[in-house]
Design a binder for these strands. Structure first.
Lengths: 141, 141
DNA sequence: GTAGAACCTGGAGTGCGCTCCAGGTCAAGC
DNA sequence: GCTTGACCTGGAGCGCACTCCAGGTTCTAC
């Protein structure tokens, strides 16, 4: 991911933390927290020590967000990030992690759908109940 | 749910907290916590003050578990439980809550599936990368 | 009737993922 | 050059959903 194709990088957008916060929906604090936690490698700085995020940082953040949204813990993301930082030799490990997470996710989606179906039944039940009450099928108020 | 059909209740299984813990997968502490929090109405007791759960308690717990597994917060479950305790007049409110939760859930499932698809792409990407490395498509080690 | 397991209570503690704060530095507009 | 708002750091605090603990009571099996 680092070597390979020497793409001629464009002007490197260089976003402030506020801009990244807006684009990702993460707060300034969370962005700093993720960096401190090692989820993002140390972001570039201005001479005055203010963060400037480039396109790669943003792409990585978006990937992290997907992991988070699919329920990966910070600890596991730290693990993944560490592997990534080690370079191309860890590709197999990272792939294994992603596959496991993917399988996990599939299971959770299945479970959610089962539960959703059960919820639908419950909703039907309540609808019938309500209808009975409204039409007075069941005797006294 | 309380009036209506006067079913001749069977011997009322009357389970101990340990038995309910095993059946539901909740810990003793969590069961007591849920009761203290008002998620379950006060469970019946022996003369010696030990809990005895009946079939209705178990069914309600299982319903709560479904709500929990689909991401409902304790606070919302408390709200639902309070409505339930108020009796049949709150059926419409409960139905509304369930419908909202159901819609929410549908959204979350959709989002998860989108993210799952993105994860699949990432996995494909890593597989190609790994294959390149193994077949030495990309030059020096 | 007694040992030991299971149960009770109120309240403190935990882990996670942020979120907030104090006290300071930096940068853009006037 | 000064104000004002964005940014920096380390560290404390928070809300959630439990989980654990101490100290006591009850139940079961012998």
């Amino acid at each position: 991911m680092t070597s390979g194709h020497p793409l001629p990088r464009d002007p490197e957008p260089s976003l402030t933390i506020a801009q990244v916060a807006e684009r990702t929906g993460l707060s300034h604090d969370t962005l700093r927290y993720y960096e401190k936690a090692g989820l993002i490698e140390r972001v570039g700085r201005t001479t005055g020590n203010q963060r400037r995020y480039d396109t790669a940082d943003l792409a990585w953040l978006e990937f992290l967000l997907r992991l988070r949204e699919t329920g990966m813990s910070i600890a596991d993301m730290q693990c993944f990030a560490r592997l990534r930082a080690e370079g191309d030799t860890t590709v197999a490990d990272r792939l294994a992690m992603l596959r496991e997470h993917r399988a996990d996710l599939a299971g959770r989606i299945r479970a959610l759908r089962r539960n959703a179906a059960a919820l639908d039944d419950k909703i039907d039940h309540y609808e019938r109940l309500l209808h009975e009450r409204q039409t007075g099928t069941d005797g006294p108020a």
